[in-house]
Amino acid sequence: MSRDETSKFLSYVLRHEPQAIGLQLDSEGWADIDALIEGAARSGRALDIETIEDVVASSDKKRFSLSADGCRIRAAQGHSTAQVQLQHVRKQPPERLYHGTASRFLESIEGQGLIAGARHHVHLSRDMETALQVGQRYGSPVILEVDALRMHAQGFMFFQADNGVWLTEAVPAEFLRRA
């Protein structure tokens, strides 16, 4: 598998479908690397520790974390599986955060705001460039500015994942505007 294919495979099994390869994640999303390698082999994918370490180290978005002892791996955020409930540290957000999306979703967002959908949180970026990159994955991109500090002052909770992505449960439409 190429580095990109390996990253996509790791995202799939560590964020959404660990059972697809018989992998168990703990409540913080950690998986035993040896079990991951064995599960990948059972599903016909060659994976080894060097490849995993390379993908973790080279991921520009820091999608994965290795445990201090190097024996476990997890996705930084974006889980949709019920067995994972990462305990991110609550933080005060900056004044503004950004969300990249496709223009075809604007009407729905203007009506109901940003919702997590199948994921546990809405993902927000500190800068417009990152939000633009995210939005481009889904079609004609639109960047939404989130009045994060005002949300926080009104009791909304914000967290920051290991890779710097800001997380919140939802963003009501009143806190959004096109950037």
Rank of each mutant, 00 (worst) to 15 (best):
M128R: 14
R3S: 12
Q92S: 14
R178E: 13
E107F: 12
Q154W: 09
C71Q: 15
A31M: 03
V146F: 02
G155W: 00
E174R: 11
I21G: 04
A173F: 08
H79F: 08
M151C: 04
L176N: 06
I37F: 03
D54Q: 14
A116C: 11
R90A: 15
D127M: 06
D147H: 09
A118Q: 13
F105P: 01
R119Y: 12
R104N: 13
P18R: 03
K61W: 12
F159E: 06
R90Y: 08
E145W: 01
A57C: 07
G100F: 02
R150K: 15
R126D: 10
V122L: 02
F158K: 00
M1A: 10
R126A: 14
Q136F: 07
H16W: 09
Q19V: 09
W30Q: 08
S108N: 11
R119F: 09
Q85S: 15
P172V: 11
L86P: 15
V171R: 01
N163V: 03
G139C: 04
Q83C: 14
G100I: 01
Q85N: 14
A57Q: 10
A75D: 09
N163H: 01
G39K: 00
S65V: 12
S80W: 06
S43D: 10
I109W: 02
G135S: 02
A75C: 04
R72F: 12
G111M: 13
E50I: 10
E174L: 14
Q160I: 10
R104M: 13
R3Y: 11
L25R: 01
I49T: 11
F9N: 04
I21F: 06
Y138Q: 09
L124H: 03
Q160A: 09
P94L: 00
S65W: 10
R3V: 14
Q77G: 08
A76I: 03
L97H: 07
G100R: 01
G155N: 02
E28S: 11
S125L: 02
I109P: 05
G111D: 11
S7E: 14
G78T: 00
P172Q: 05
R119L: 05
G39S: 00
T6S: 10
F105A: 11
A131C: 05
I37L: 08
G44W: 03
G139Y: 04
A116M: 03
A40E: 00
Y12M: 12
Q133W: 10
Q19K: 12
Q24K: 14
G155R: 01
M157T: 12
I73N: 02
L25K: 00
L10P: 07
L132I: 09
S103H: 10
H99C: 05
L66K: 05
A35I: 04
